[in-house]
Design a protein around this nucleic acid. Sequence first.
DNA 1: GATGCTATCATTAGCAG
DNA 2: GCTGCTAATGATAGCAT
Lengths: 235, 235
Amino acid sequence: MARKKVQLQWIMNDTTRRTTYKKRVKGLMKKAKELSILCGVEACAIVYSPYDPQPEVWPSPMEAVRVIGEFECRPENDQTKKRLNQENYIRQRVAKAEEQVVKQQKKNRRMEMDNLMYQSLAGGRGLQDLNIKELSDLMRSIDDRLKPISHKMEYSHHPAPQPGGAPALTAVPVAQKTPLEVALESLENQILMDTAPQPQDGVVTVAHTAGQDMMFPVPHDNYEDPSFWGAPFFP
Amino acid sequence: MARKKVQLQWIMNDTTRRTTYKKRVKGLMKKAKELSILCGVEACAIVYSPYDPQPEVWPSPMEAVRVIGEFECRPENDQTKKRLNQENYIRQRVAKAEEQVVKQQKKNRRMEMDNLMYQSLAGGRGLQDLNIKELSDLMRSIDDRLKPISHKMEYSHHPAPQPGGAPALTAVPVAQKTPLEVALESLENQILMDTAPQPQDGVVTVAHTAGQDMMFPVPHDNYEDPSFWGAPFFP
DNA sequence: GATGCTATCATTAGCAG
DNA sequence: GCTGCTAATGATAGCAT
């Protein structure tokens, strides 16, 4: 794709092939990421690196398995369309609301962080109409998402850890509970409170929040190639 | 990518999103194919989404199934196991905490929570070790999951909502912050605090920041695994 | 809604250090 | 082998049909 048009065929030169592999895997990951974000699809990624005995997985092995599991268990779709419509509606509203929030936020917040920033928002009241499945799914999702980063935590964390050197943004006040617990509980409460009645429903979302795509650009062919495990991608 | 640089964010317009989805899926498939050919790796691509009744598979459903099977059958490594154990532990703690919350909640139900939850966090120093990617992903995940249920949210939310009916468990003291906001920040802290030293684990290593990738470059073999053939994905 | 057409932006092959 | 650079090729957003 550059400097010279490459023939679509196996690259003979080992070094070149490896280099190309690295570059392209990176690019592929990015593409997948973009697709998921732009079109709102959940996904996971697993990469078996030739030189890495262990595969790289994102967001985590468990998450990957979960996603694949959902893929496998996905029922024949009939409701897909209906779901899509509902979700689109929802997403659009949220997106708009988000813009508002972001604007406000930018005004109110004086940030000093130098690397990462993210935002998330949740509906306050009005969750009543929400499908319970969605709620549980939400929780599950959050829970799952916490796993990958949870392993970083000390197995035994303090009952009431003080955010001593914690980032400037927070001040955790609740005693006897870890920030993580508090966080989840808060979120949980938010949901529970607005869940009472479940009028309509009949819908949605078993496991997929919105579109659930999964795409596995994966190795292919020549699986009998013995070199795979020895030198997986680069025979 | 063309005519105009697009923001990496969910496309609100249904038609546009669908169109983009189609184009990009196609492009992704091509990329996967090229990678597999150029670098001589086995690969397959599966795209499953609400936009299509049938999942798109490359090079063939069989190949895809085989690859996924390989991934799932792959034995977990030590690090993974350890991580999973830790995660299970976390899960249990969270589950218990949730129970408590539920009880509490039922008592306090009737709150109003008509505010908008919002949070923004940044990876401060120290996050380097953790994996900003993971954190970022977590936040995005939560964000994504919340979107679908947020449509009920009143469009007009307060800039600085007061946690009036905030969950009982969290005595949120921070003014100008909603329960969710605080919760997430707490979570953030938790992560930051317990992340410092994590020499042994160099894992999880996501390939991307918040990206929801859906790509599984995977090894091969075990395509005869029947468990996949029963799957409804490849009608 | 699907297809065809570019102007543009994005990816990356080939090198250099 | 890895990183950075840039020329070329590749991917695709916005439109027109």
